[in-house]
Design a protein around this nucleic acid. Structure first.
Length: 455
RNA sequence: GUGGUAGUAGCUCAGCAGGUUAGAGCGCCAGAUUGUGGAUCUGGAGGUCGUGGGUUCGAUCCCCAUCUUCCACCCCA
């Protein structure tokens, strides 16, 4: 048998100990913040039935779903159905009924419906798990990546939106990543579409204007034309999307603009409430009302939020919004939810790029005990137990190897202290403690040792 | 899914108008130093030149396919 070259699927990654310690640093900060606001954890399976996932993310989203081939004789269904077409679209549902989750929001909606009788509403949950997308990988874009979701379901109140912005602000402040929090409202976007008599073109309009900053006004006009918008409508939309002024001016402008759009006025009312609240808070990061913010996922109905890093090429590190009827498709209508999701992998990339990880994360063990032999081993093991009982990560080198090798081990693992306990130390009841950074070493008592390590 | 870019030692890269034993730096291993790591010195190991096919007397180099990376589009965390 020939030896095969080891490899992992495109767009997936292994994580080394150093990377994991750093990733956990991010997860810990996020998790603690979620908990601080009273959110509770849940987890859902990596795979869902395709019926749960399909049609929730738009046509593009369906294409990006990873599908799982049925087990066993997966062609049997096809034989029975007598289908002769070679069209993969017809065959796909017959040979695959499960898929990997694309995000955490839709599985959450499924969870809520399925467990509605056990849940106390409003239900505040957080969920930190990987998701999969069959996208073509790029920098900051992976096929397997972690999302950190917080959602409140079963409450219409805009107060929830306020807390979500607070959570966002606190998380990025803690991680020391400067961000801009952009907010908008789907009802405003609908209002705009309605005001130019193109309500049915809502998603075409939003997708086009979302790109304004990136491709410029002329290209946006072109795209709107291509998407079938009449020139008259385009002329009417230009002043809105090019509006570059203070939040108050934007609201005033839209108020006049939405004279014939009730939905638009409702959206304005909602965003005004949110903004007024946010102005009263002391946030670390800036927020802005961005009329152009659209967000692709088509289940959003109200507030939409996006988090953009100020000092990185990576576009977005988080996003979310309100969805009024996501549970409806699963049989639980009239339940509104709002949530936001943070991309842990992109956060990692940015922190790495900007050198934002604390240096202490380099070392996981505080002290290494040198192995001098069996006698010393027995003597040291109780010392180690005592240290560990005080929550000091400590290890004993498992082999009676050359001192050089053991010291090197400590050095590589960035262990800051080494304890040498041989015959001499056992007799005198002391410990020779070496500070690996300064190179200094001295004989100390066990109590002194503990005090040094607890610093 | 569309268009481009690159792939040579563990890492970063050199190389060749197609021609004998493919190099460097860093890293790794061993020794100088049997109770002391980082620095220095000495020696050593390590390559199907991404994979498969083709052209050729001969391919790491040219051609095709394929995989992977990065970039742009699409879309998105």
């Amino acid at each position: 048998m020939s030896v095969q070259k080891p490899s992992i699927p495109k767009g997936t990654r292994d994580f080394s100990p150093l990377e994991m310690v750093r990733r956990n640093y991010i997860f810990d900060k996020i998790r603690k913040t979620f908990q601080l606001f009273g959110f509770q954890p849940i987890e859902t399976p990596a795979m869902e039935n395709l019926s749960t996932l399909l049609g929730k993310y738009g046509e593009e989203g369906d294409k990006l779903l990873f599908r799982i081939l049925n087990s066993g004789d997966f062609l049997s269904e096809i034989k029975q159905s007598g289908i002769t077409t070679e069209n993969s679209k017809d065959i796909a549902p017959l040979i695959s009924e499960k898929g990997l989750r694309y995000d955490l929001t839709v599985p959450f909606a499924r969870f809520v419906v399925q467990h509605q009788n056990e849940i106390t509403f409003p239900f505040k949950r957080y969920q930190i798990q990987p998701v999969w997308r069959a996208d073509r990988p790029q920098k900051g874009r992976y096929r397997e990546f972690f999302q950190c979701d917080v959602d409140v379901i079963g409450s219409d109140s805009l107060y929830n939106e306020v807390e979500l912005v607070q959570i966002t602000d606190q998380i990025f402040a803690q991680l020391q990543i400067p961000v801009k929090i952009l907010i908008n409202n789907r009802k405003i976007l609908y209002g705009i579409a309605e005001s130019i008599d193109a309500a049915e073109k809502l998603s075409d309009i939003t997708m086009a204007i979302d790109k304004l900053e990136k491709i410029g006004l002329e290209k946006v006009k072109e795209e709107l034309q291509q998407r079938g918008l009449p020139d008259k409508a385009i002329d009417k939309i230009i002043p809105v999307i090019t509006l570059d002024s203070t939040i108050c001016d934007k609201i005033d402008f839209l108020n006049a603009y939405f004279i014939h759009s009730e939905t638009g006025r409702k959206g304005l009312e909602e965003i005004s409430y949110l903004i007024e609240y946010l102005k009263g808070l002391e946030l670390h990061n800036k927020f802005d009302f961005d009329i152009r913010l659209a967000r692709g996922l088509n289940y959003y109905t109200g507030t939409i939020i996006e988090v953009k890093p100020l000092e990185s090429s990576i576009g977005s590190v988080g996003g979310g919004g309100r969805y009024d009827d996501l549970t409806g498709i699963f049989g639980l209508p009239n339940v509104s939810g709002v949530g936001i999701s943070f991309g842990a992998d992109r956060i990692y990339d940015i922190m790495n790029e900007c050198g934002l990880f604390p240096e202490v994360l380099q070392s996981t063990t505080k002290i290494l005990f040198i192995n001098f032999g069996t006698e010393e081993e027995k003597y040291c093991i109780s010392l180690l137990s005592t240290l560990r009982a005080s929550a000091i990560p400590a290890e004993f080198y498992p082999e009676n190897a050359k001192l050089k090798k053991q010291m090197e081990y400590a050095n590589r693992k960035n262990i800051p202290f080494v304890a040498l306990v041989g015959k001499d130390e056992m007799e005198s009841g002391s410990i020779t403690l070496k500070d690996m950074k300064s190179g200094e070493q001295k004989a100390v008592s066990f109590e002194e040792l503990k005090n040094v390590l607890l610093l």
